[in-house]
């Protein structure tokens, strides 16, 4: 990797000040995406601001209406958290499907959302659950947070502090893994919320996670796998690679959505 200056931030203000001060500075949370990119010399931050010693970014809290998870919560913590398992079991299950156990001990919720890898799992959950991303500057609805491949609306010196997931009535996530990388080829998160149904897809979009209005409308009428029969997502605009063509991804979105609905219905 290229050389950089390392800063171990002890507080949020110090962290955001460092990010504001140095051009090309980057925060590092779990580092499970960033460090491999740096090792391949595909990322070259001038300054690395380590958030691991920052206090107050770790809690998981369940209220009557929402599950609020600190940005530095590790995937492994989310996976086994009694609050998450009680509030949104689908989210606990999703966290247990990210990477592998060792990666889950380091990787964080905030890091995953901020990185917005088009094949990451959390963006689908954030979109489907109608999450609110709370930052050092503002509160951002998930629908407005993601801004294309590896892009979000976060400013360079803005950090996620926590994410609030409103509790759904039912939810489930189904993931079809890339056989090599084990990231999602297609991951579908369905959530039956008090006033609406949301279906969010990761892994398939050429520019990141997206919602499927046609599926949502059909499921709004009746939350049952049969409601999705005959519906499909057009292949145009979907990602295509050696593991999955756009047509195959379009097909898998239907399959995974039906299975997710079935799983959500128990």
């Amino acid at each position: 990797m290229y050389d950089f200056t390392y800063h171990r931030a002890s507080g949020l203000r110090q962290a955001t000040n460092l990010l504001a001060k140095h051009e090309d500075a980057k925060p590092i949370a779990g580092g499970q995406s960033l460090l491999p990119m740096m090792k391949f010399r595909l990322a070259s931050p001038s300054n690395l601001v380590d958030l691991n010693a920052v206090e107050g970014l770790n809690g998981i809290e369940l209220t009557s209406r929402a599950l609020v998870i600190g940005a530095m919560a590790r995937h492994a913590e989310v996976h086994v958290s009694p609050q998450v398992q009680q509030g949104i079991p689908a989210l606990a299950a999703l966290a247990g499907m990210i990477g592998d156990p060792a990666v889950r001990h380091r990787g964080t919720l905030g890091g995953s959302l901020a990185n917005n890898d088009p094949t990451a799992d959390y963006p689908a959950a954030a979109l489907a659950l109608g999450a609110t991303i709370v930052t050092t500057k503002r509160k951002i609805p998930a629908d407005e947070f993601f801004a294309g491949l590896f892009e979000t609306v976060l400013e360079p010196d803005e950090l996620i502090t926590k994410v609030s997931f409103p509790l759904p009535k039912k939810a489930a996530y189904q993931k079809f893994r890339n056989p090599a990388s084990r990231y999602a080829i297609v991951g579908v998160f369905v959530a039956k919320r008090p006033a609406e149904v949301r279906v969010a897809v990761t892994g398939a979009g050429a520019s990141g996670a997206f919602r499927v209005p046609a599926f949502e409308e059909a499921l709004q009428k009746r939350f049952h796998p049969k409601s999705l029969e005959g519906l499909s997502v057009p292949a145009e605009g979907l990602a295509s690679d050696i593991h999955a063509s756009a047509e195959y991804r379009a097909h898998l979105i239907g399959v995974m959505a039906r299975r997710a609905v079935a799983a959500a219905n128990g």
């Binding site: 390392y6 580092g31 499970q32 460090l35 491999p36 090792k39 492994a76 990477g99 592998d100 156990p101 060792a102 990666v103 001990h105 380091r106 990388s181």
Partner: peptide, 21 residues
């Protein structure tokens, strides 16, 4: 960060020591 030959425990949990400074 896939093969796991580098797994060690840091503060009691398994991590990939190739993906940590």
């Amino acid at each position: 960060s896939q093969c796991g030959a580098c797994v060690v425990h840091v503060n009691g949990v398994a991590v990939k020591s190739c993906t940590m400074l």
